[in-house]
Amino acid sequence: MLDRRIRHGTPAFRRTNLALFSSGFATFGLLYCVQPLMPALSRDFGVDAATSSLSLSLTTAVMAVGMLFAGVISDAFGRKPIMLASLLASSLLVLLTAVSPSWTLLLAARALLGVTLAGLPAVAMTYLSEEVHGESLGFAMGLYIGGNAIGGMSGRLISGFTADHASWRVAVAVIGALGLLAAFLVAKGLPPSLHFEKRRAQPRALLPVFGTLLKDKGLPWLFAEGFLLMGAFVTIYNYVSYRLLAPPFSLSQSHVGAIFMVYLIGVGASAWMGSLAGKLGRGKVMWTALVLMLAGVALTASTSLPAIVAGIALITFGFFGGHSIASGWVGLRANGAKAHASSMYLFSYYMGSSIAGSVGGLAWTHFSWAGVATYVAALVIAGFAISLKLRLLKPQK
Rank of each mutant, 00 (worst) to 15 (best):
L2F: 11
R5I: 08
A12P: 06
G24K: 00
A26S: 13
G29I: 00
L31G: 00
V34R: 00
V34W: 00
L37H: 07
G46V: 09
G46C: 08
S52N: 10
S52C: 04
S52Q: 12
T59K: 01
T59E: 01
M67W: 03
M67P: 04
S74H: 03
S74I: 07
A76M: 11
F77K: 10
R79H: 08
L84N: 07
A85M: 12
A89I: 14
A89Y: 05
L92D: 07
L92G: 06
L93F: 05
L95Q: 11
S102P: 03
T104P: 00
R110A: 02
G119S: 06
G119Y: 02
A124N: 06
E130D: 15
V132Y: 09
E135M: 09
G138A: 15
M141C: 07
G146C: 12
L157E: 01
S159M: 09
G160H: 06
A163Y: 02
H165Y: 15
R169V: 05
A171C: 12
A173D: 09
A182F: 07
A183N: 08
K188S: 13
G189S: 04
L190D: 01
L194N: 12
R199L: 12
R200N: 11
L207K: 09
F210M: 14
L214E: 01
G218A: 13
L228V: 09
M230I: 13
G231D: 07
Y237R: 04
N238H: 14
N238D: 11
V240H: 00
A246D: 15
L251G: 10
A258C: 06
M261P: 00
M273L: 15
K279Q: 14
L280G: 04
T288G: 13
A289K: 01
T303S: 14
T303A: 13
P306E: 12
V309P: 03
G311C: 08
F320Q: 12
H323W: 11
W329H: 15
V330P: 02
K338R: 15
M344N: 00
Y345V: 05
G352K: 01
I355V: 15
V359W: 11
T365W: 01
V372S: 02
A378F: 10
I381F: 12
K389F: 09
K394T: 14
K394W: 03
